[in-house]
C-alpha cells in the first residue's frame, strides 16, 4: 500500500523545478553564450550534412534527401565524422582551454577528400 504521507519539503529543494538560472551578473552574457553554443551546433549540422552528401556523391553518383536521412556510415566513415566533429569542437572552443594545444587542429576531413 503506497504511503501517501506528503513530503512537503521536497518542492522547496534546489533542483526540484527546472528553473532558468543565470550565472553572470548581466544575464545578457548568459544569453550570448547560449546563442554561441546553439550556433555551434547548427553549424556542425550543416557541415555533417555536407560531408555526407559529398560522400554519397562520390560513392553513388547522386544524392537524395532520403539517402541522407537513411545514411548509415561504415566504420571508416563514422570514424572520420567523429574525428571531424572532435576537431571542429576544439577549434571553436579551444580558447577556453589552459593551453593552445587544442586550437591548432586542421580541417583534416577536407584534406583527405582532396587526396581521395
Amino acid at each position: 500500500m503506497l504511503d501517501q504521507t506528503p513530503l512537503d519539503y521536497v518542492k522547496d529543494l534546489p533542483g526540484f523545478e527546472r528553473g532558468h538560472p543565470h550565472y553572470f551578473k548581466d544575464p545578457m552574457i548568459d544569453h550570448l553564450l547560449e546563442i554561441v553554443m546553439m550556433i555551434g551546433g547548427e553549424l556542425w549540422v550543416e557541415r555533417d550534412r555536407r560531408l555526407i552528401m559529398e560522400h554519397l556523391l562520390e560513392s553513388k553518383g547522386s544524392v537524395t534527401q532520403t539517402m541522407v536521412e537513411q545514411f548509415e556510415p561504415d566504420d571508416e566513415m563514422a570514424e572520420k565524422l567523429s574525428t571531424a566533429r572532435d576537431h571542429f569542437t576544439k577549434r571553436v572552443f579551444g580558447c577556453l582551454y589552459d593551453t593552445d594545444e587544442h586550437t591548432d587542429v586542421g580541417d583534416f576531413f577536407n584534406v583527405i577528400g582532396k587526396e581521395g
Binding site: 550534412r49 545514411f71 566533429r85 572532435d86 569542437t89 571553436v92 577556453l96
Partner: peptide
C-alpha cells in the same frame, strides 16, 4: 527522426565531454 537532430545531439555530446571533462 532526422539526421539534423541526430548530428546536433552528437555535437552537444562531443562538445560537452571535451569542455567539461577537461576542466
Amino acid at each position: 527522426p532526422s539526421r539534423a537532430d541526430e548530428s546536433f545531439v552528437d555535437y552537444v555530446c562531443e562538445a560537452r565531454n571535451t569542455l567539461l571533462h577537461a576542466r
